[in-house]
């Protein structure tokens, strides 16, 4: 492991705000796929989990929110186990995991983001305001009563983001939020995530494209079975790290793995990215 955020954060795990993963082991049916000794996602910045296919990025994300039961270790949010505060964590699945022929209108799906708070009870005026605002933010307000089966890929992804935002969680965990979306949607999603981060939300996303990750995230964690590197994109994504990650876990050459220039380019596409 290279760097841990310059060692400026408090020494005690339990006082650090944000998401703190410690020695988490996750896998399927007893076989551990990924081990994460340490991952810190602070509020106010976007943390990206990158790495080769099969390296365990999504598996780790699912272990953090309990979709898979970790074989060991803990995931803490503001010092308390994530499992004790599930409604504070919004999860955005890959859109391919969902059936888009499901009979629902756009606003029905956003309204599901209020389920963790409202459950089976009647939605309040506040709920409806939050739902409307979330739709507005992702630019789908005009399509509120539209069947979801008519949405394009980018619109689907924005819809799922609106649902995650409507949950108003302390943390938002996103599995490949930019996979297969058009440029307009990508820009919009990044802007919204940047703004949410600025408001103090913990943002963690799985991202597959190393060429764009430095425009997407303030903090990068490279996963290939374990944590290969962590830190700001310019430091974490050194050519050596990339080679180690991609040759270790995947025999195929990785088209996205380009050498990282030491001086990182200005991050123009995300508001609030430190230069």
């Amino acid at each position: 492991m290279t760097s841990l955020d310059g060692g400026t954060q408090p020494a005690s795990v339990h006082e650090a705000p944000g998401l703190a993963v410690r020695d988490l082991g996750v896998g399927y049916g007893g076989a551990e796929v990924v081990r994460c000794p340490r991952l810190d996602a602070e509020p106010g910045r976007i943390t990206a989990i990158v790495g080769p296919n099969g390296g365990g990025k999504s598996t780790l994300l699912k272990g953090i929110i309990g979709l898979l039961t970790p074989s060991r270790g803990t995931a803490l949010l503001d010092g308390r186990p994530v499992a004790e505060q599930l409604r504070a964590v919004a999860f955005m699945p890959q859109r391919a995991a969902l059936d888009w022929d499901f009979p629902a209108q756009v606003r029905d799906v956003v309204a599901m983001g209020r389920y963790p708070h409202r459950g089976l009870r009647r939605r309040t005026r506040e709920d409806h305001e939050i739902i409307a605002r979330s739709l507005e933010e992702v630019g789908l307000a005009d399509l509120a009563t539209h069947p979801i089966r008519h949405l394009s890929g980018g619109q689907q992804q924005r819809l799922l983001l609106a649902r995650a935002l409507a949950q108003q969680g302390r943390a938002v965990l996103l599995d490949e939020p930019l996979d297969g979306v058009d440029l307009t949607s990508e820009q919009l999603i990044l802007d919204l995530l940047g703004r949410a981060a600025q408001r103090g939300t913990v943002i963690v996303l799985v991202h597959h494209d190393l060429t764009t990750v430095r425009q997407v995230a303030h903090h990068v964690v490279v996963i290939s079975g374990t944590v290969v590197a962590a830190g700001p994109p310019s430091r974490a994504l050194s050519p050596g790290v990339i080679e180690q990650a991609y040759t270790g876990a995947s025999s195929r050459s990785q088209p996205h793995a380009s050498p990282a220039p030491e001086a990182s380019e200005p991050a123009a596409r995300t508001p609030g990215v430190p230069r």
Partner: peptide, 17 residues
Amino acid sequence: RAFELWSFDPQMARAVG
């Protein structure tokens, strides 16, 4: 509401407890 969420997105249903 629970049936709706569980049918559309069982992952989210589980993720929110």
